[in-house]
Amino acid sequence: MAKSALLKSSIVKKYWMALTGLFLCLFLAGHLAGNLQLIFGTSLQFNEYALFMTTNPAVKLLSYLTYISIIFHAIDGIMLTIQNKKARPVGYAKTDGSSSSFASRNMAVLGTIILVFIATHMVNFWAKMHFDKNMPLMVKEIEVQGNKQKFYVGTQVGQFFPVEQVAKEGEKPDPVTMLPKQFVIKNKTELHYSQADVKAADLYKDLHKLTVDFFKDPKFGLAFTIFYVFSMGALGFHLWHGFQSAFQSLGVNSSKITPVIKFVGKAFAVIVPLLFAIIPIFLHLKK
């Protein structure tokens, strides 16, 4: 096969679209499993999971594959759409859409909505988790001898550090006692002894709190929730056509297997976006 055919041939474009699309379906399933911990897990479980996802090297590799797939899927889709528009320079005065599904005719529009959603989603969560200096650290309230006290949570089991013992970086010693606090936070998540400059523990970033606060935001929480649910609707329609379409593009079509693929595809297109959408609604309404 000529090198240029990798991108140029109409059929090879279909293969790329299908392969990246199916990979992204796997990603969706994995992402959903993680998100569901916001409903069914504790905040510690969720933050443990978030730490694992941001530090594990295998996950890192998968995440790069995902970014590449999203970018390639989008660029290939845009190229296809432009070419397909050019293939009919003069349109029809009257059209009848009854011979194809709404989803199949609007994959580019649905894909654009999803792409915008992904961009906002990464700004709101991914970028904050990775780069935000003010990303909150996990604080747990525990009752000690009848009094409620706040503790930072270390990543090793059983590590709790009283919040009032922890200084922010550059914080001056107490003006009365002239004694510095016992701990100081460095490099966003590292807890150091303030005197010896030795690391005492790694702390959890509180992605759980960030997420809950995001959807419970008194001003914008409702708007964020509605946009999220709307985007999941677009995703559902996109998958409704896309899932089974990917198999057709890869040449998998027979009277035996195709009904199964179509059924699984439609089930996936309904269940996955629905479960995704339930989470922000649940968080928004939660007391």
């Binding site: 109409s10 474009k13 279909k14 296809l80 070419q83 397909n84 050019k86 293939a87 009919r88 011979s99 194809s100 599904s101 199949s104 005719r105 994959m107 056509h241 089974q244 379409s245 057709q248 593009s249």
Partner: peptide, 8 residues
């Protein structure tokens, strides 16, 4: 010709 998007 355009590219097939499997609309059917």
């Amino acid at each position: 010709f355009g590219n097939c998007t499997n609309t059917g």
